[in-house]
């Protein structure tokens, strides 16, 4: 029943993304329209995949760092990605492939740095140190990013700012293909770790005594979630809140068994971002809002509401 509802919501979100837009496309022409085929359809699919990746990465990271406030960007990835992208903009490295690539490289660099700092005693990944390292690396990257932006020309500044708030206007079938090839492996790694994540919620030693290979699971989940986030950032910029709100909403509906929670977070994240992107395209047409602004405007009140409901209990 829950799955049926979530599936229906996803179908509605995808349908709206295809039907709605600044240009009116008649119902009868939907199948043959060039706008639908080369713009709306790849964009809807990309939004769904990116949102799903962020939702699932967020759910896994919350269990990994044992902190319900964790989201894919807490660990410094957005900072690194933003720095990479802004650097590329400032250096006028054009071309549709350079910007995502620069963001991806930046995110990976941040991930490597945070991971290195988070390794305690050579092998153990300490979640507390991981969070601190993530915040520190993110803050540093943010400072450098702001320094570059403040020295940039006005046109570059606008580009950089739009990118930092996320957007899917660059969506293409090529991007969909890249994500489709890249995403299944980290998704599989996270799903394989689902039961271990249930155990990790009890703490390190209890998890070990219930059969979890704690160190290995932590390393795998961290790397897989980071790779998902890096890919999402590369094709869509920094889209906040999806990875934070969606796992919480899904936990309320599905409970905390990650075998069900992780897929639910994927579908839920995809649905949310697809809807948000449709709003971003349509709300101020013919101009477009960065989708990260829409997710924040929707996400923050929803999150506040959820928090109130939990703390009232």
């Amino acid at each position: 029943m829950r799955w049926l509802g979530l599936g229906a919501a996803a179908a509605v979100a995808l349908a709206l993304a295809i039907v709605l837009g600044p240009t009116h496309v008649a119902w009868s022409a939907l199948g043959s329209s060039e706008i639908v085929r080369s713009l709306r359809l790849p964009r809807a699919i990309l939004a769904f995949l990116v949102g799903g990746a962020l939702g699932m990465a967020g759910a896994a990271l919350q269990a990994l760092v044992r902190n319900p406030l964790a989201d894919p960007f807490l660990l410094g990835l957005s900072g690194g990605a933003g720095l990479g992208a802004v650097l590329a903009i400032a250096l006028h490295l054009g071309g549709p492939w350079i910007l995502p690539l620069a963001a991806f490289v930046g995110a990976l660099a941040a991930m490597a740095l945070v991971y290195r700092v988070g390794l305690v005693g050579g092998a153990e990944l300490d979640p507390r140190v991981l969070i601190l390292a993530g915040v520190a690396v993110g803050a540093f990257a943010g400072a450098v990013t702001t320094a570059i932006v403040s020295l940039a020309s006005a046109a570059d500044l606008r580009n950089a700012l739009l990118w930092l708030w996320g957007g899917l206007s660059g969506a293409s079938w090529d991007a969909v293909l890249v994500v489709c090839v890249y995403v299944p492996l980290p998704l599989g790694v996270l799903l394989a770790a689902a039961r271990s994540l249930d155990l990790l919620a009890l703490g390190e030693e209890p998890a070990r005594f219930l059969g979890a290979d704690v160190d290995r699971v932590r390393r795998r989940v961290y790397v897989a979630a980071s790779l998902l986030t890096a890919a999402a950032v590369a094709v869509s910029g920094v889209v906040g809140f999806v990875g934070l709100i969606v796992p919480h909403a899904m936990r309320a509906l599905w409970g905390h068994q990650h075998r069900a929670l992780l897929p639910a977070a994927f579908v839920g994240g995809g649905t949310l971002l697809t809807l948000a992107d449709t709003v971003a395209r349509v709300a101020v047409a013919p101009r477009e809002l960065p989708v990260g602004i829409v997710t924040a405007l929707v996400g923050v009140p929803v999150f506040a509401l959820l928090m109130r409901r939990w703390t009232a209990r």
């Binding site: 044992r66 919620a201 009890l202 905390h256």
Partner: peptide
Amino acid sequence: GVVAQREDNLF
């Protein structure tokens, strides 16, 4: 089977 001294219930 081990019942450790401490454990958390995060969720």
